[in-house]
Design a protein around this nucleic acid. Structure first.
Length: 423
RNA sequence: GUGGGUAUAGCUCAGUUGGUUAGAGCGCCAGGUUGUGGCCCUGGAGGUCAUGGGUUCAACUCCCAUUAUUCACCCCA
């Protein structure tokens, strides 16, 4: 089979001009909101050293085990296209000594990410994420700030009925104690469980709770839940988070099953889930990762963040019938008949554009009728055609394309009038 | 990695039990006016019917494979 020159690779897609306005809209809204909370934008590389993700995301995760786009560059370095944003941001935090900045350090980003997975609704191999990382703050207020940002973002976009699922997966201390309890419970059932679960039993028993195999689900149902076995400190942290969420009126649902995909998550984990955009309903996921900076070679630093799937966000907005902005249309179209008029058209359009007016002019040398049709299709508010009469009298008919009315207007005052009447 | 659906024009789709020049609507271009869009009318461009093989006198139509796409499993944003 010949390589498909005319087809984008599997799992990638073009965002076409007709859809750009809605992307710009959600991007701008997100960026404004982040700034109001004191977050600063950061831009990180599309690729990093493979080892960063192995450490930062975790060797036992599906992401690292089977979903990364990894290749050798010409210097024989192993390079990986970022499968998410947190690892890169944490690397940057360490590399640039951000631990010496006034704490906490609050960052946001809008990135593409890459995972080699089979494509389905709401899931692509190249996808877009908005994310936030809050580094240096261990207090439960930090968890609440990050979650409340999301709640406010959805509110501002007019999105309703997303469910906030919340859980705590404890700290390394209580988790290892819990893991022992879990292993003790699972030990007698192990022979009847699936192969991957038997492997997880050794490497990362908590992930067994995520298994969807029927046989395993049966065993898991009555397994001890981590949330019921976390240490006093983690319990206190979690209860402060929920108390504060209640204080500002953000509803949540405790879901003891949330584990999250990254190994370094600690304490609070959460996701915002939709029911109506297919089975990939997690619009946004995040959590606390107090061990991550240290694991990547920095000083012990608490952190919390989230990533929001933009494709899923837009799917959700569409499914809720939320009206999204469309591209701006020209304020005026200027056409011309004949060479003399074309020269005048050139000058006029130039002046309009220097005055910041959205102006489209004829560059096809077409008939008047074709030009008017074109102006109509562009959605221009006004149209104006220059010809011999206009040159002679220095006047033209300014046509309002919505009402069809025309007005005689002196070309000298055209710009003033358009500036005044704009918008 | 696994399973199901789908593949005909730029888009949405027809195409009879297999039958000769593959159609429609929308969109695009042009004309119907001598210098003015929308409605209407006329004309035009645009398809190796996803690709490769097979059955047949004959395949868009039946069979097989491949690829793409889509939905789902796994997992995640």
């Amino acid at each position: 089979m010949a390589i498909m020159l005319t087809q984008a690779p599997k799992g990638t897609r073009d965002i076409l001009p007709e859809d750009i306005a809605q992307w710009n809209y959600v991007e701008q809204k997100f960026s404004e909101l982040c700034k109001k909370f004191g977050y600063k934008e950061i831009r990180i590389p599309v690729f990093e050293h493979t080892e960063l993700f192995q450490r930062g995301v975790g060797d036992t995760t599906d992401i690292v085990q089977k979903e990364m786009y990894t290749f050798k560059d010409k210097g024989d370095r192993s390079i990986t296209l970022r499968p998410e944003g947190t690892a890169g941001v944490v690397r940057s935090y360490i590399e640039h000594g951000m631990g010496s900045l006034p704490q906490p350090v609050k960052l946001f980003y809008q990135i593409t990410a890459y995972r080699y997975e089979n494509v389905q609704k709401g899931r692509y191999r190249e996808f877009h994420q908005f994310g936030v990382e809050l580094l240096g703050a261990a207090d439960p207020s930090a968890d609440v700030e990050v979650i409340s940002m999301l709640a406010l973002y959805f509110e501002q976009l007019g999105i309703k009925n997303l469910v906030l699922n919340l859980n705590s997966i404890g700290c390394p201390k209580c988790r290892s104690a819990y893991n022992e309890k879990l292993k003790a419970y699972l030990k007698e059932h192990l022979s009847s469980m699936c192969e991957t679960c038997r492997e997880r039993y050794e490497r990362n028993p908590m992930r067994i709770l995520d298994c969807k195999e029927e046989g395993c689900k049966l065993r898991i149902k009555d397994a001890p839940a981590l949330l019921d076995h976390i240490c006093d400190e983690c319990r206190d942290h979690f209860s402060k988070v929920t108390t504060r969420l209640e204080a500002i009126g953000i509803p949540y649902n405790i879901d003891k099953g949330i584990v999250r995909g990254l190994d370094y998550y600690t304490k609070t984990v959460f996701e915002f889930v939709s029911k109506n955009i297919g089975t990939q309903g997690t619009v946004c996921g995040g959590g606390r990762y107090d061990g991550l900076v240290e694991a990547c070679g920095g000083a012990p630093t608490p952190g919390i963040g989230f990533a929001l799937g933009v494709e899923r966000l837009l799917l959700e907005m569409q499914s809720q019938g939320i009206e999204l902005p469309k591209a701006e249309t020209p304020h005026i179209y200027i056409g011309a008949i004949g060479e003399k008029a074309a020269l005048m058209c050139e000058r006029l359009a130039w002046q309009l554009r220097r005055n910041n007016i959205f102006c489209v002019k004829d560059i096809m040398n077409r008939s008047v009728k074709a030009q008017m049709k074109y102006a109509d299709k562009l959605g221009a508010h006004y149209a104006l055609i220059l010809g011999d009469n206009e040159i002679e009298n220095n006047k033209a008919q300014l046509k309002d394309m919505r009402t069809g009315e025309t007005k005689d207007i002196s070309l000298d005052t055209l710009i003033d009038r358009l500036v005044k009447h704009r918008g």
